[in-house]
Design a protein around this nucleic acid. Structure first.
Lengths: 160, 160
DNA sequence: TATTGTTATACTCTATAACTATA
DNA sequence: TATAGTTATAGAGTATAACAATA
């Protein structure tokens, strides 16, 4: 793909936004994530952070805030605040870990579980609709390619 | 991929964040876009909006604010504000369109062009590094798959 | 002294919409 | 009345870092 970005005379390089991979990825992510956000924001009045935490605890039973940070790719501050809001809305509750009282084990309340059970089928249906653009084989290809790109980008970010 | 998300007994559906496509896409986008943002933010002190506008005008010579909205996938308000900041920094200048004075044609100043020429090779190098995770063929596959997914997600968003 | 988690602060980004000017 | 672009405003999100509690 050496001619993907036009190379003008004198070897001057051009960057065409509509063909620039990070731009395309960003635009795609915006469209996809907004189509999901319509659900948790519009219909359930949850922030992205709250939605991720509910999704995490819905399947994992209980986690500490630190584990949630790792599992949801959110910052510890975002997690801390989302937890506070969700507790305030009676969606989850805390227990102290008896071994190490710095850990607060978080679990969904019955209300949180009900929300989880309502939102999950809708979220999965949206994913399924979006991925119906691809065959099963293409879906696997896409995920595999994304993973490779992810690893390389990680490398880049670490080097600054 | 019918077993991708675990289906528990009683047909209750589960959603595993690490396997959920919109989540994976979002995480990938975060990593990739941050690796580019290190450039325009860290080294050139440009916002994402400013960077996109410079990239647009660097190759397109001159555009109106409305055209920039379409070209950069930014909101007209973001464009308006980024233009104000860039004009203030003497990176671009406005001319009124003689036919329709509502249109302001925007172009890079010499300073803007110098910035563009400095940043573009670095931005392209980062893209190239990231995509070096893939063969040429895989790159084309990835872009093609992303486009299909994009179209479907567009559909979904329009239906709400 | 290190770790888990919370809070303070200031800053930026965003969304909605009102507004100006041109047509 | 419609369009291009700007400005106002308030709310949400973000980053840095200080802080408390526990180990």
């Amino acid at each position: 793909m050496t001619t993907k970005h036009t190379v003008k005379n004198k070897g001057e390089q051009q960057l065409e936004l509509p063909r620039y991979f990070p731009y395309k990825l960003s635009v795609l992510n915006t469209v996809v994530s907004q189509s999901i956000a319509q659900l948790y924001l519009g219909r359930f009045n949850l922030s992205r952070q709250e939605w991720r935490i509910i999704a995490a605890l819905g399947i994992q039973r209980s986690m500490s805030a630190k584990e949630l940070v790792a599992y949801t790719s959110l910052e510890k501050m975002q997690v801390s605040r989302a937890i506070a809001r969700l507790r305030n809305d009676d969606m989850l509750y805390q227990q102290e870990d008896s071994n190490d009282r710095r850990y607060h084990l978080l679990s969904l309340t019955e209300k949180g579980k009900i929300t989880y059970r309502k939102i999950v089928p809708l979220a999965l249906a949206r994913e399924e609709f979006i991925l119906s653009a691809l065959t099963e084989e293409e879906q696997e290809q896409l995920l595999s390619l994304m993973e490779k790109v992810h690893d390389k980008a990680d490398e880049l970010q670490q080097w600054g």
